[in-house]
Design a protein around this nucleic acid. Structure first.
Ligand SMILES: [Zn+2]
Ligand SMILES: [Zn+2]
Ligand SMILES: [Zn+2]
Ligand SMILES: [Zn+2]
Lengths: 365, 365
DNA sequence: ATTCGTTCAACCTGTTCA
DNA sequence: TGAACAGGTTGAACGAAT
């Protein structure tokens, strides 16, 4: 389903007719179009007493060079239209463009933004405003338009697409624009719960109260610790993705806060210091315990060795592990068997715990 | 996606008649819709002579789990309606909400964060966007929707519903949307007596003198054992819920004490040690009983082996046990056989426990 | 049936270092 | 900067005692 068909469905015949500009400002306050550019938006508006309709495209964000050219070209087209033709201004930018042009460009993969730079540079993200249709009636005009975020090809898979899914009508257009929607849908549905809220990368869990990847976790902590104010080198509107997240600390940090990461949950300097000390102490204690238990073991081994000198079959002990003593009679051979436990360089947690328990029982009672 | 499954509803008589309202009250919040606890907002945009009516549910931000469920439930209501109608998308925040109030909130930084993390943090809000109706006709299109900002999980049972009910025009729809509410209330009344006094989670019984969940039980014990003083990283006013209880130990512990959990009922270190020893001894006893039965087996084996020495068909003995005892001198038979038991890399729980018991038996008696 | 303590995999801190 | 690591915390499931 294309924009054109949407238009047709409403019985709108392109730029054919033109009449007085609607008295209301399309009922849409300008500031309303200050959109978080990740999303797509459906909007409808009614204007009284109109008989004509126009289709156009506007730009919600300060346009880049290519977009400016695009729009200029479209504006030229409009100038050739019959007098009285209305151009709708839909954003801070006062010009309009035939949506078909841009859409076809998209379909042909001729989006002017060079992907390899766009991918890493969040600043060149653009949002395009498609005025899809406008209808007239006895009492007024209906305008129907959709906002689509034109990020780069590579960054489209993540956020914009997912949001576009929510716009059923806009979805048709977005699918055409991106061509990747269906795959993305599946992927995103599968990994939706594991996507970093900041950059969309794989999230392993919650960090500082938000579902984020390892990178954003570390970034947030460092950002909190160094209190240096951050500054966006672009337009302060960067869309953070996995690939460009390193390009703008300011917007990344802003996004971190926006999704709920909390500075309070980063341990303060004192807390960290306390923690470090505690861990060090613990380590020392463990070491001493291990030491004594090792000493104990050594002693046991020596004892065992002593005892085993009386054993002709002594060789059979080496290389063996403690055995299932439950089958043993309660004889003295127990201690021997225990002493044979080989020393490992690394103990498992469990082993250490066991050791500790034994230690406590041995010396603490 | 539930948000997409929004379909038209022809049978909403109430809504249909509501169409004959003055035009374009778009974005005007009405004070009577501003309901506790946080914020709710009505948008109405009505055009006379509608022919169609759509009802839907949307979300302003990536929905959290509970919000998803909420929306799914709402969407289910409409899936049975005639298909082929328009779905309206409702995002993003700054666009769909053109009210001064919300914009001001934005400027003050009080805008709701994205909810998928919100419900884990105390004091963070979520926003729900209910698109209640939208219709098109010869003359235009009607959009009717409501934004509700709710406060974290704790307020979930009540807020969205109550708020919607106050929206006079959408009341019937909202009741449909929240049809589960009555059950919920009943359920909650039924289970109120089993709610954890600290966090509201399901309580299985009394722990340390208070009705708490398993989590708070464990938390309290550990907090008592830990001598580390706790500090609230927020404002020392945290409202503990099931979802955010991990976020602030200090306030959780304070709440624990407030509802009457008593530290005296946590066993002291000595008591615990005593208990452990008591249990171990008991276990030892059991083990020794088992031991003797195994001893009997061993004896049986030995006897059997002995008897089998008279057996010309000696082969019946081999394979009975890992090693051939017949080559060993009888005096050392036991030790050898035992020490030859192969090492297992992984012990079973029972084995480990037994081992420990033996350790204790060896060293403690 | 309760309610103590115990266990341990899953989590979520900070730390390290290429 | 972030993957890999180390160590503490959590809570569902369980064992034991009463
Ligand atoms: Zn991330
Ligand atoms: Zn930026
Ligand atoms: Zn609780
Ligand atoms: Zn607190």
């Amino acid at each position: 389903m294309s924009a054109r068909r949407v238009t047709a469905r409403h019985g709108l015949a392109g730029m054919a007719s033109s009449a007085a500009r609607p008295t209301t400002t399309l009922g849409v306050p300008r500031s309303q179009h200050r959109v978080s550019p990740v999303y797509s938006l459906w909007f409808t508006q009614v204007v009284p007493k109109r008989e004509r309709l126009d289709v156009g495209v506007g730009c919600l964000t300060p346009p880049s060079r290519w977009l400016k050219e695009e729009m200029r070209a479209a504006a030229r087209q409009y100038q050739t239209l019959p007098a009285g033709n209305t151009t709708y201004s839909v954003s801070p930018v006062e010009c309009s463009v035939n949506s078909q042009i841009l859409r076809d460009r998209h379909l042909r993969g001729e989006n002017p933004v060079e992907p390899h730079t766009a991918d890493r540079s969040p600043g060149i993200t653009e949002s395009v405003f498609f005025l899809l249709s406008a209808g007239t009636g006895k009492l007024g005009l209906t305008v129907l338009f959709v906002l689509v975020v034109v990020n780069t090809k590579t960054s489209l898979p993540t956020n914009p697409v997912r949001m576009n899914q929510k716009a059923a009508r806009a979805q048709d257009i977005c699918e055409e624009l991106t061509g990747q929607n269906e795959e993305d849908e599946e992927v995103s549905e599968n990994e939706e719960s594991r996507a970093c809220g900041v950059c969309g990368d794989l999230a392993k869990g919650y960090h500082f109260n938000a579902l984020t990847c390892e990178g954003c976790k570390g970034f947030f902590r460092r950002a909190i610790k160094r209190s240096t104010p951050l500054r966006c080198p672009f337009l302060n509107k960067c869309i953070i993705t996995k690939n460009n997240r390193r390009s703008c600390q300011a917007c990344r940090f802003r996004k971190c806060q926006a999704i709920g990461m909390r500075k309070e949950m980063v341990m303060s300097e004192e807390e960290v210091l306390e923690r470090r000390i505690r861990i060090k102490k613990k380590k020392m204690l463990d070491a001493s315990i291990q030491l004594s238990s090792q000493q104990k073991e050594t002693i046991e081994e020596l004892l065992c060795g002593h005892r085993s000198t009386f054993d002709s079959a002594f060789s059979s002990f080496s290389g063996f592990r403690p055995i299932d003593r439950s089958v043993l009679p309660e004889s003295k051979c127990n201690q021997q068997a225990i002493s044979v436990v080989p020393l490992k360089n690394k103990r498992t947690k469990r082993e250490r715990r066991l050791e500790k328990a034994v230690f406590l029982l041995l010396f603490h009672t």
